[in-house]
């Protein structure tokens, strides 16, 4: 009896695990990624508030501080299409499609990092 129970439990776990892996969790192309301003777990929960707070002090006071959407894009743009948008694998679009949270950041903000040539001319100056 116990063995059957264990087998059943294992089966259920396996099935749900498979379900999570295959269906629910988005496979994100995180670009360069890595630890930046905070650890990923914290950022996953708080990036919205951080950006909102930062945008107010950036726009109104000129504080170009720790958090910046531009920096997010610089590291998290996919290396395939050089953007955080485009497909459901791209960093911003993928997760927001998964969470069903509509964002309008990129109607105004660039979804692509500054191109290499522009960065180079910037440095050359």
């Amino acid at each position: 009896m116990k063995r059957i129970q264990a087998a059943l439990l294992a089966l259920v776990l396996l099935a749900s695990g498979a379900a999570f892996a295959d269906v629910t969790v988005p496979h994100l192309d995180i670009g360069k990624g890595g630890h930046c301003v905070n650890d990923p777990k914290f950022m996953k929960l708080n990036h919205g508030d951080l950006l909102k707070h930062q945008r107010t002090i950036t726009v109104h006071q000129g504080v170009r501080g720790r958090y910046s959407l531009e920096k997010c894009v610089n590291c998290h743009a996919s290396r395939v299409n050089n953007s955080v948008l485009g497909t459901d694998r791209n960093f911003c679009q993928g997760c927001h499609a998964y969470a069903a949270v509509k964002i309008d950041c990129f109607e105004c903000h660039s979804s692509r990092p500054e191109t290499v040539s522009e960065t180079l001319t910037e440095i050359a100056k």
């Binding site: 531009e70 105004c108 660039s110 692509r112 990092p113 500054e114």
Partner: peptide, 16 residues
């Protein structure tokens, strides 16, 4: 009109 390819440090958009 809707805009595309704004500069990263100069965000701008339709309707504003």
């Amino acid at each position: 009109e809707p805009l595309h390819d704004q500069k990263p440090d100069v965000p701008r958009g339709k309707g504003t």
